[in-house]
Design a protein around this nucleic acid. Structure first.
Lengths: 97, 97
DNA sequence: CCGATGCATCAGCGCGGATTGACACAGTAC
DNA sequence: GTACTGTGTCAATCCGCGCTGATGCATCGG
């Protein structure tokens, strides 16, 4: 007996981020480089404000960051933070290791 | 443009399993070997029937399997399916790769 | 200037999942 | 046999999360 309760709050929060198909699709699409919001919204069949909200959550978690387009500053490109994504992958893998 | 919609249903479903702190704690505790239900319920501070229900979901996903105790068949020990867990870890890592 | 476009934020609603409480079942001890 | 323990299942409830619809903000083009 006397099992210690494992600390899983961090990995569980990361898993919750990946648990939504829209957010998972965003991260999958960003594997091949940056994309703008309307582009990903169209690919996912979701509305723009929805995708924007999900991107805000990924941003708060530090998994993605945004930059403006050089020519037209209305376009906002999102890109993955490779270091944060690698750390997240390691944290999740630690649960199943 | 014309981004294809990525296929993320599988990884998202796996992430949803890990997104619950109780299920994540179960998998974390099972890393060091099999445990019975009441043991894990006590360690997590959750009720036994609750843990039993979460174990049923992990069982349906194939991540764990159960065996009876040799001495007292009332006690049911759960253990991880290492192959399924490795496959799940690979599927999740593919999202963040 | 004005209208259009791309993005972000907010209150409200609905739905799915987790918890609760009660019960049923198998196995053990007596 | 009865009493007790460990586990599983079920209806009912609660609650958090995502979607909707509207609105605001910044930027570009005329």
């Amino acid at each position: 007996m006397d099992l210690p309760a494992p600390e899983v709050a961090g990995p569980a929060a990361l898993a919750a981020l990946l648990a939504d198909p829209t957010r998972a699709g965003i991260l999958a699409m960003l594997r091949d480089g940056p994309h703008c919001v309307c582009e990903m919204a169209a690919a996912l069949g979701e509305r723009q404000n929805n995708v924007s909200m999900h991107l805000a959550r990924l941003r708060d978690a530090g998994l993605v960051h945004r930059t403006r387009h050089d020519g037209d500053a209305r376009w906002i490109f999102y890109a993955r933070d490779d270091a944060a994504c690698a750390a997240a992958a390691a944290a999740l893998a630690a649960l199943l290791r």
